[in-house]
Nucleic acid binder design. Structure first.
Lengths: 197, 197
DNA sequence: TGTACATCAGTGAACGCGCGTTCACTGATGTAC
DNA sequence: TGTACATCAGTGAACGCGCGTTCACTGATGTAC
C-alpha cells in the first residue's frame, strides 16, 4: 500500500470530480458509493473517510458539477471577453448538446433538482443567478428581463434538443433558438418592461 | 374478496394514473412497485397481472404523464380556441409552477428523459412536436422557428422557476418570459429565418 | 333458476440482489527522540 | 541518521434494508348444463 496525507486530498478530489461527471451524465440516482469508489480505483469502505454520507457527497458534487459547467462556458467566455452571440452559439452548439458529461449542469439536472430538497435547489439557484447576471452584462442591460428570457430559452432549447437527439429536429431546435436569441442582441428589439430608461 | 373482470381494467387504470402522477411529482426513480400498489390499495404481487415489468409500466406511465399534461394545457386550450397569449400565460402561471403533479410533464421530466433510452426519448419527442405544432398554429406561422423558440423559453422558464421556487426571482422569471413571449405574437417582431414568404 | 366447475384478479411469503453504512484490520507514512 | 511508536488512508467482510420478481394459493366471478 502506501497512502500519504497529501494523497488523501487527491483521492477526495478524484471522487468528487468523478461524482460530478457521473451526475451530469446519468443523474443523481445513478451514483452508488460502491461503483463510484471502484471507478476511482478505491474500495467502498474508504468513502467515509472523505464524506459523511452519500447525501453529503451528492450536495458537494452538485456544486462541483455546476461549477465545472460554468467554468467551461460562462466564466471562460467572460475572461476573454466575447459577445453575447458567441456565448449563445457556444451554448447551443452540437458539441455542447452531445457532451452531457462536460457540459452545463443546469439542463442536465434541472428536473431532478426542481424536486430535490431546499438546499440543492438553493445551490443550483445561485448558479442560475450567475448565468442571468452574465447574460445581462453581455446584453448591456440594466435589468434582468431580457437576460432571464435568454437563459430560459437556452436552457430549454438545450434540454429539448437532447430529447430530440436522434432526429434532424434536434439540430433545427438549436439553430432556430440560437438565431432568434442573437436577434435579441440588437438593442430594444424587444422592449424592456415599460421602456423607461 | 371479489374481483370481476371489469374491475381489473379499473385497477390497471388506477395503477397507471397513480404512476403517472408520482412520476411527474417525484421522478421515475421514486416509483417502486410495492409502494405504488399500496397507494392504490393493492398488494405488490398483483402488479404483474397488469404490467410485464416495472420498466414496462414506466414507459406506459411516461406516455400517460405526457398525455395528461397535454390534455390539461394544449389540447384543452385548442378545443375552445384561445390565443397564444392565453396559452403562454396559462403555461407560465404560478398555479402551473406549483402543481408538478398535474402539470406539463416536459419540464418535470426532461432531464431524466434526456438521459433515458431511445424509446422514452421518442415518446417525449412526439409530445414536444405536438407542443411545437400547437404553438405554430396559434402564432399563425408557416414554419416552426418561432414556435420552437417559444416552446424552449416556456419549458426552460417553468423548469427554472421551480428551482428558484423560494424567492421572488421565481415570479420574476415567469413574468419576464411571459411578457416577452407574448410580444412575439405581434407578427414579425422577430423575423423568420430569411423573411421569404 | 340452480348446481358444478373453470377462470383468474388479487394475496402474501419467499427469493436473490445491490445498496449505504460500519468496523476491525493492515501497513506505509509521519514523528519523537 | 537511525530506531520505536503513533497515526491514519485505505481494505474488505459483514450488517440490515428495500427492491423487483416469482409463485402457490384463495375465493369471488363467470359459465356450461
Amino acid at each position: 500500500l502506501g497512502h500519504s496525507q497529501a494523497e488523501k486530498e487527491q483521492s477526495r478530489e478524484r471522487i468528487l470530480k468523478e461524482a460530478a461527471d457521473q451526475i451530469r451524465e446519468n443523474g443523481f440516482d445513478s451514483v452508488s458509493v460502491g461503483k463510484l469508489m471502484k471507478s476511482v480505483n478505491l474500495t467502498h469502505g474508504g468513502f467515509y473517510g472523505h464524506f459523511a454520507s452519500r447525501t453529503d457527497l451528492l450536495a458537494k458534487a452538485l456544486t462541483r458539477a455546476l461549477a465545472d459547467g460554468v467554468n467551461r462556458s460562462t466564466e471562460e467566455e467572460l475572461a476573454r471577453p466575447r459577445d453575447f452571440a458567441s456565448f449563445v452559439r457556444n451554448y447551443l452548439s452540437h458539441a455542447h448538446r452531445d457532451s452531457r458529461k462536460t457540459g452545463c449542469a443546469v439542463p442536465a439536472l434541472i428536473s431532478d433538482v426542481s424536486r430535490a430538497d431546499a438546499q440543492s435547489r438553493a445551490i443550483m439557484a445561485s448558479y442560475i443567478e450567475g448565468y442571468i447576471a452574465s447574460a445581462r452584462r453581455q446584453l448591456g442591460d440594466e435589468d434582468d428581463t431580457r437576460a432571464m428570457f435568454a437563459i430560459s430559452a437556452m436552457v430549454g432549447a438545450l434540454a429539448l434538443s437532447r430529447v430530440l437527439e436522434d432526429s434532424t429536429r434536434s439540430d433545427e431546435m438549436l439553430q432556430s433558438v440560437s438565431e432568434q436569441l442573437i436577434a435579441l442582441n440588437a438593442p430594444n428589439v424587444l422592449g424592456h418592461s415599460d421602456s423607461q430608461d
